[in-house]
């Protein structure tokens, strides 16, 4: 059962990690927390579900879902954050909460308050691994998540735009003086973070066979916790934070009590913050 619970934790941990990456990148570069991350996750899922229902093409649907998530992220940066740049950090925070409430209400209006099933059901075949059952869908989620994380890391370290983002995160004034388009870097950060959240939303809509306007709430909160757990601003930290959170809550639910499943995630968060106030991979300045 231990291996099975670790696999369960790994699957949900991958999703938390993807959402956490969005939080951590945006925090790293702008110093703000984008609380609308969970809503972007939900919009990605809904767009994919609606496109799939209309066209029947899963690849097109996934692409559309991620595209809408990206557009939403960039719009959010333009409308909710750019005008507030340089103000007290509480102000963009309130703006982010406002954007989150606006988007979830918008989704309720556009898509209705109800849960929707994914347009077609997957019947993944599963195989056994040391007595634990793992199905193709779980494997695909882990593979896609790892792939996306690898692409992100390569993008940040190998490309011009990626390096620009790192430079802006280190010192935006110095970056601007050396000729980096800072606004472009912000936009790309939002675009990447939103794409990851959108992808996570789509995978979960398939995995749980359910999409609803409030589906982003809990993953958003967990992703945020994962980002803090790993050390805000740190990319490997967000990934580790997500996995630790996912595994902690599954093991807690399995060996202690499932009534407190969500509590275990947050207990892990509190413990890490007491022992390592900057998070697992946080910089120790």
């Amino acid at each position: 059962m231990l291996i099975q619970q670790l696999i369960n934790g790994l699957v949900s941990g991958c999703v938390y990690a993807l959402v956490a990456l969005g939080y951590t990148m945006i925090f790293g570069i702008l110093g703000i927390v984008n609380f609308a991350q969970g809503e972007i996750y939900m919009f990605g899922a809904f767009t994919a579900v609606l496109t799939l229902a209309a066209t029947g093409n899963i690849w097109l649907a996934s692409a559309a879902g991620i595209a809408v998530a990206c557009v939403l992220g960039v719009l959010l940066e333009r409308i909710a954050f750019r005008p507030l740049r340089g103000m007290h950090p509480l102000i963009p925070l309130i703006s982010a909460i406002g954007a989150s409430i606006f988007l979830s209400s918008l989704a309720r209006l556009l898509f209705g308050p109800e849960d929707r099933a994914f347009p077609f059901e997957f019947h993944p075949s599963s195989f056994y691994f040391y007595g634990a059952q793992i199905n193709q869908l779980q494997l695909a989620i882990i593979a896609v998540s790892v792939g996306l994380m690898a692409i992100l890391t390569l993008f940040l370290n190998m490309t011009k735009h990626g390096k620009a983002i790192i430079a802006v995160a280190m010192d935006s004034d110095a970056a601007r003086l050396s000729g980096i388009n800072v606004n472009r870097a912000y936009e790309i950060t939002f675009l990447l973070g939103s794409a990851l959240s959108g992808a996570a939303g789509i995978m979960m809509a398939i995995y749980y066979n359910s999409t609803s306007p409030s589906m982003g709430l809990l993953p958003g909160l967990k992703g945020f916790s994962a980002a803090i757990l790993g050390g805000v601003g740190s990319i490997p930290g967000a990934i580790i934070g997500g996995l630790v959170l996912g595994i902690a809550e599954n093991l807690g639910a399995a060996y202690i009590s499932s009534s407190f499943k969500d509590a275990f995630a947050f207990i892990a968060l509190v413990l890490v913050l007491i022992l390592l106030p900057r998070g697992i991979m946080g910089s120790r300045k």
């Binding site: 849960d115 809990l218 599954n250 639910a253 399995a254």
Partner: peptide
Amino acid sequence: FMVGDRDFSSQLTKIKQQQFDLLFIPGYLQ
């Protein structure tokens, strides 16, 4: 499980360890 949960895998893994012939799930359909 909690209201709003969509991941039941840890509970179901535990349940699967047991011998039973009826699974009863009271709650709301969401």
